[in-house]
Design a protein around this nucleic acid. Sequence first.
DNA 1: CATGATTGTTTCAGAAAATCAAGCATTTCT
DNA 2: AGAAATGCTTGATTTTCTGAAACAATCATG
Lengths: 146, 146
Amino acid sequence: MSTPRSDPLALEVVDLIGTVVARYHEEYAEAATRHHLTVAQARVLALLATEPAAMRSIARQLRCEPSNVTGIIDRLEARGLVERLPDPVDRRVRIAAATDEGHRTARDLGGAPSFAREALAELSAEELGTLRDLLRRIPGCGGTDV
Amino acid sequence: MSTPRSDPLALEVVDLIGTVVARYHEEYAEAATRHHLTVAQARVLALLATEPAAMRSIARQLRCEPSNVTGIIDRLEARGLVERLPDPVDRRVRIAAATDEGHRTARDLGGAPSFAREALAELSAEELGTLRDLLRRIPGCGGTDV
DNA sequence: CATGATTGTTTCAGAAAATCAAGCATTTCT
DNA sequence: AGAAATGCTTGATTTTCTGAAACAATCATG
């Protein structure tokens, strides 16, 4: 069951989540700056390092307009971190993929693994398991994509 | 004690945190847009609704250049949501404070309370307590300010 | 199969956000 | 009092972002 959550405890938890969010972002921004990338560029590069994606798909994942993605990819491409490839199936589509150097940079950026190492260092495996189970119960966090 | 955290479990937790971060941001952006505010403006307004702050202090909390804050406050001021007040102690300092309408807008924005209501609805009070305790153990999340 | 609608990307114009360097006023230090 | 430091703003520039319009390619349908 669940009661309407406006009690102090829920607010404190939200506040803590807010702090984690802030820290997450801060480290991300720092790592990006270290590599002379903006946050938006680093985000897209990390995304493409996982797997190549069509422009439209990137826009959907970033929840922004496709025309915005064009510019970001332009700049990443100009630096040799990303390249545009044709889609063999649909000739309208252009697939952005990380180059070798892009993959190297993405790896250097750290991202999730480094956050895992630094932020969760204090928690035991059992506590991590509990944390995972609780986070999974937050709606919209079960599936990979909406 | 703590082991180096690069194991799959830690990575999954970071991934979940990432999802929560994304959701947090998404709702923030949505609420801001609803009020014809940008995310940056909404963030500053929420900050000032809690308590007035000098420009420099805002910049520190946003981790950006003071000159950036000038512009954001300019636009909020132009819309009557914020006003600049002199600091009675130091005549260099300008204190930004939310106006009555600014406070109203900030309240309408929802922010933490609405996230608490929607995202944490499924968790019981006991589970929330556990979650709080675990989040508190993430370094840099204990104190209010760095 | 031809035509019309839809889709995927880009271009353009424009606002906002962000950085950096410089400038100005005020405060603090010596 | 004079020099250094502090707080904010301005101006120039880049990046992010949106929305409208253009264009090519695909799809749907009669």
